[in-house]
């Protein structure tokens, strides 16, 4: 955690266990960490180390089996389903390796979804959609469907959709995993820009340490669901 920034996210001995028959899978096991407001943190680890599970706990998509996940002063573990949905709607934006756009909807409709859920006034929606597309440099593609866009463009749309409700935290789960390296670099540059320009806190999951080194202020390592190492980039 950077020295001056106030803390926005704190995990306290957070665990997420899955019961598979008689065995218990400890996807996330007693992880404690802190993230400062406006920070850019990289979450690293090999496949199956529990990165996605931890990110989903931070994003309020899942609840910890034990421990506390405190975001902006509130423990997500204690929130009701309705409050958790509100948290996802207003406080975090998430992007994924597979973009997760709704394929039968146009770019505009995809971006409108979070606005509908947040009950943003109709008259305001168009401006918010254009503003978000402007930030990712895709103003001209409003009426296109995801299938008519390249992978990089799709991920830009996903980023725009994650930002359209102006969240304070952006959670990215291997956003470059489906992209060639040049496009991947472009996407990471875009995320870095967003972090710098608007002070949005970013937690980026990746398994490529080299990429993380270039942009992240801090790296967190997971192995078998446990926090193994936390260090500044080389």
């Amino acid at each position: 955690m950077s020295d001056a920034a106030p803390r926005i996210l704190r995990a306290e001995r957070v665990s997420r266990h899955y019961a598979m028959g008689s065995a218990v899978i400890r996807a996330v096991d007693e992880v404690s960490l802190e993230v400062g407001a406006g920070e850019f943190v990289a979450l690293l680890g090999s496949s199956g180390s529990g990165k996605s599970t931890l990110l989903n706990l931070m994003g309020g998509l899942d609840r910890p089996t034990s421990g506390a996940m405190v975001v902006a002063g509130r423990d997500l573990a204690t929130l009701g389903a309705e409050e958790l949905a509100r948290y996802r709607r207003h406080s975090v934006g998430m992007i994924f390796q597979s973009f997760n756009l709704v394929p039968r909807m146009t770019v505009e409709e995809n971006l409108e979804l979070p606005l509908r859920l947040a009950e943003v006034e109709r008259g305001e929606r168009r401006a918010r959609v254009e503003e978000a597309l402007d930030r990712v440099g895709l103003q001209a593609r409003l009426r296109h469907r995801p299938s008519e866009l390249s992978g990089g463009e799709q991920q830009r749309v996903a980023i725009a959709r994650a930002l359209v409700n102006r969240p304070t935290i952006l959670l990215a789960d291997e956003p470059t995993g489906n992209l060639d390296s040049r496009t991947g670099t472009e996407i990471l540059t875009l995320i870095e820009e967003i972090n710098r320009a608007s002070g949005t806190t970013v937690v980026l999951v990746t398994h490529e340490e080299a990429r993380a080194d270039r942009i992240a202020k801090r790296k967190i390592f997971l192995a078998d669901g446990r926090l193994v190492e936390e260090r500044k980039p080389n």
């Binding site: 994003g59 998509l61 997760n100």
Partner: peptide, 10 residues
């Protein structure tokens, strides 16, 4: 699932 990630409640 996407809708829920975007903040849709049950």
């Amino acid at each position: 699932g996407i809708l829920k990630a975007l903040g849709a409640s049950d």
